Every structure is written in C-alpha cells, then in structure tokens.
Amino acid sequence: MTTIKTAMPGVIYRRPSPEEEPFVREGETIEEGQTIALVEVMKNFNEVKADQSGRLTRFLVEDGDEVAISQDIAELED
C-alpha cells in the first residue's frame, strides 16, 4: 500500500467543480498521472496527480479540508 501526497498546502477539492462528479471514487482503478484532486492556493487550482497506477482504496481527507505540504491524502493499492 502506498499513499498519494500533496505537493503544496491549501484547500483540497475532490471534484473539478461543486456540480460535477469527483475525479475518482474510492475503489476505482487509476492510472499514473491521473488527476485525483485539486489543491487551491490563493485562488489558483493545482492538480494532484497519481504517481503510479493502482486501486484507490481510501481518501484520508474530505472535500474542502486544509492540507499541508507532503500530507497523505489517499491510499493506493498496487
């Protein structure tokens, strides 16, 4: 089991916009480089991408949570 971490602090969003579906849901298989969330820093949105392929087993943060640099935000099963 590996984790996906943030590269910067800010507010995390698991959807591209409030009206849209999440980038990915728990239990789904994701590909390396796939966007799984956004981190907002001073009105700029930065993509959080998967470092590797696998099954996203669990998010460790909720939509709208504040995150720190290198914080684990999701667990990934190889």
Rank of each mutant, 00 (worst) to 15 (best):
G54R: 09
S17W: 03
S70G: 05
T6D: 11
V39Y: 03
V67M: 11
E21G: 02
D78H: 12
E26T: 09
G27R: 03
E20Y: 00
F23Q: 01
G10Y: 11
F23G: 01
N44Y: 06
E62Y: 13
V61A: 13
V48S: 11
D78N: 15
E75T: 14
E75H: 12
E19Y: 04
T29C: 02
V67K: 07
L60C: 07
E20V: 00
A37T: 07
E47S: 05
E62L: 12
L60W: 10
A74T: 10
K5I: 12
P9C: 01
V48E: 12
P18F: 10
L56S: 04
L76M: 08
P9K: 02
I69Q: 14
R15I: 02
T29S: 04
I12W: 05
F59T: 03
T57H: 08
G33Y: 13
F23L: 02
P18Y: 10
V67I: 10
D78W: 10
A50I: 07
V61R: 04
K43T: 06
N44S: 14
V39H: 00
Q34D: 00
P9M: 01
K5N: 15
D65W: 05
G27T: 08
Q52L: 08
M1S: 14
D78I: 10
L76I: 12
E62H: 12
E62G: 15
P16N: 07
E31H: 03
E66T: 14
G64P: 09
E31S: 06
M42N: 06
M8D: 05
I12A: 08
L38Y: 01
A7F: 03
T29L: 00
E21Y: 03
F59V: 04
F23W: 03
G33L: 13
N44V: 14
L56E: 09
T6K: 07
E66G: 11
T57E: 14
V48P: 02
V41P: 01
T57I: 10
D72H: 14
G64R: 10
I36S: 01
L76C: 06
L56I: 10
T35V: 14
A68M: 11
E20T: 00
T35P: 03
E19Q: 11
V39G: 01
E47G: 03
T3C: 09
S53D: 08
M1P: 09
R58E: 03
V41T: 08
R25M: 11
F45I: 09
S17L: 02
V67R: 09
E21Q: 06
Q34S: 00
E21R: 04
N46L: 06
D72G: 13
G27F: 09
E40L: 06
L38P: 00
K43F: 09
D65K: 06
E20M: 00
V41D: 03
T57F: 10
E19P: 01
V39S: 05
D78G: 14
T6H: 11
R58M: 03
T3N: 13
T35G: 04
P22S: 03
T3E: 13
L76N: 04
V24A: 01
A50Y: 07
L56D: 05
A37Q: 04
A50H: 06
E77D: 15
V24C: 01
P9T: 04
V61H: 14
Q52H: 08
G27P: 07
A7T: 06
E47K: 05
P18T: 07
D72N: 15
M1T: 13
P9H: 05
N46G: 02
A74M: 08
S53A: 14
V48N: 08
M8V: 12
I69M: 14
F45Y: 15
A74I: 09
T2N: 13
